[in-house]
Amino acid sequence: MSVIIDIEKCGKIKDCPGEGLCIKLCEQGALEEVEGEIVLHPEKCDDCDLCIQNCPNQAISKEG
């Protein structure tokens, strides 16, 4: 099971107080920056939930 990013809440990298904090925290490479956008690679996600817990905009959650 991977995470989902709420696009409404996510400030993208330019408006994120942590300037893409989720990308910096994820050591699995499951979150990546592509031209200012956050791109999720679900196959790399190990469900550690660090991104969920630390997202400054509370934009990340689990499916279901």
Binding site: G18, L21, K24, L25, L50, Q53, N54, P56
Partner: peptide
């Protein structure tokens, strides 16, 4: 505060 990002020097 966000203690993990702080501890990792990200914030």
């Amino acid at each position: 505060g966000p203690i993990l990002p702080i501890a990792r020097g990200l914030l």
